[in-house]
Amino acid sequence: MLLWINGPFGGGKTQTAYELRSRLPGSVVCDPEHVGFGLNRMLPPGLRGDFQDLAAWRRGVVEVLDLALTRHDGVVIAPMTVTDSGYFAETVGRLGELGHDVRHFTLLAERSTVLRRLRERGPFHLLPGAGRRTGMPRRESWAVQRLDHCLERLARPEFAEHLWTDRTTVPRTADRIAVLAGLTLTPHRGGPLRTRLRQAGVGLRHIRFD
């Protein structure tokens, strides 16, 4: 089974993916973003853009996830924002056409909620003078620029199932996905502090510098 977790940048996709992995024995996270960053690094800086516009990214994601789903005996989790319906058909849709059990979920939240999460993402908001002009680092500023577009596009029916996350936690979002996908998670362990530390660790491991 493939769990594709969609949503705006800063919407909680990666945190939810790793919460699921920690409570779903045998599962793995396969992040399609890695394919995109690799392709961009191959290009001269002036030619780099949205890697989803590269047909090689869309084909590569399908090939890699098809291999993982065929050879790995466990659930595969892919956290990735896709807002273009054509690209969605070429990736998520194509994997379903190949015969895989694909479950797609879009995490949504109010604009103010996502903005707050972006400002708090990673350790940079703790540093003096970080993001002085915008209140956040460059990558998060780019995510803000794309936020309205993401929220408008992802609210469309073709990107269901929609899960609103404003008034819930990452563990509860993972619980909801598991119920909808017919999966059984191990109990969530640890209090609020331990949960925050674990999520901070996930955030640190996924800081991008390019």
Rank of each mutant, 00 (worst) to 15 (best):
S22N: 13
R48S: 04
I177E: 08
R116Q: 10
I177H: 08
D84L: 00
P171N: 01
T113P: 03
V28D: 10
S112I: 05
P32Y: 03
T83G: 05
W164G: 10
E120S: 12
L2P: 08
L183Y: 06
E120Y: 06
G182S: 02
A56W: 14
R94P: 12
R103C: 12
E19A: 09
P171V: 02
E33Q: 05
R111L: 07
E161M: 08
F124G: 14
N6Q: 01
W57S: 03
H72D: 12
R153L: 13
L39N: 11
L54K: 01
L24K: 04
G46E: 15
R167C: 09
D50M: 03
V179N: 05
G74I: 04
A89G: 07
V82G: 03
Q145V: 11
R103Y: 15
P123V: 13
N6H: 02
P157D: 09
L193N: 13
L107G: 08
L95C: 01
E63R: 14
H104N: 01
S22V: 08
W57N: 05
F37Q: 15
C30W: 11
F9C: 11
L115C: 06
L118Y: 00
P192F: 06
A109F: 15
D73N: 13
G99R: 06
I5E: 06
E152Q: 13
R132P: 12
G131E: 01
Y87C: 11
H149P: 02
R71C: 06
W4D: 10
F51E: 10
Q199M: 07
R146C: 08
G74H: 07
S112Q: 14
E152A: 14
Q52Y: 03
A17S: 15
E158N: 00
T70V: 05
I77E: 07
E63V: 09
F51Y: 15
V114W: 08
F51Q: 05
G74C: 04
F37W: 15
V62T: 01
H72L: 07
P171I: 00
V144I: 13
P187Y: 02
G26P: 15
G7I: 01
A89I: 09
R139C: 10
V179K: 10
W57T: 11
G201M: 12
P171S: 06
R23L: 02
E152N: 14
H100A: 05
N40S: 07
R119F: 14
D66Q: 00
G46I: 05
I207C: 00
T113G: 07
L65M: 07
R71Q: 09
D53A: 15
A155Y: 02
A181M: 00
H125T: 05
P192M: 02
P79M: 02
V144T: 10
V61P: 10
S27C: 10
A68D: 13
E97P: 13
E152K: 07
K13H: 09
V29D: 13
P25L: 03
A143D: 14
C150E: 15
G203Y: 05
G12C: 07
P8E: 06
V61H: 05
V61N: 08
Q145N: 12
R21M: 15
G99E: 04
R21N: 14
G131V: 00
R111C: 09
V82W: 00
T91K: 01
C30M: 09
T168V: 03
P123H: 14
I77V: 00
F105D: 15
R41H: 07
L3C: 01
G190W: 09
H125I: 01
V28A: 11
E120C: 01
R23Y: 05
P44C: 02
F159K: 04
